[in-house]
Amino acid sequence: MALAAVALAGCNERAKTEVHTGGDPGRGSLLVDEEACGSCHVIPDKAQGNGLVGPPLAGIARRAVIAGLLPNTPDNMTRWLQSPQSVVPGNAMPNMGLTQQQARDITAYLYTLD
């Protein structure tokens, strides 16, 4: 896991992201718009990404830990996105009913933000 995180550091190329996450960053980007993640997070390059409820997502590809709890691996990121409420019960990020594939796509997109 730690290895994967290290391997991810600094790799923002689309192809590499796809291999690591099994997701499509393009679709992920659209999903981030549709779900309006930007109403809680500052997201670089997103016009609607100026939310100030959760932490900014700039550099999330290189962050070591997700939500102060999970090592930042593609699998953990997917898990977090699908069900933040079971990872950190009662935190402000809601479960948004994402499918596994949707969560993978968003993970792929997030790993382009380094």
Partner: peptide, 20 residues
């Protein structure tokens, strides 16, 4: 017309509409 009416947008809006 600013945000789609989704779980995420609604939560963010209630908590801190000033950012949006």
């Amino acid at each position: 017309g600013l945000l789609p009416n989704t779980v995420g947008a609604l939560s963010g809006w209630i908590e801190n509409p000033q950012a949006m």
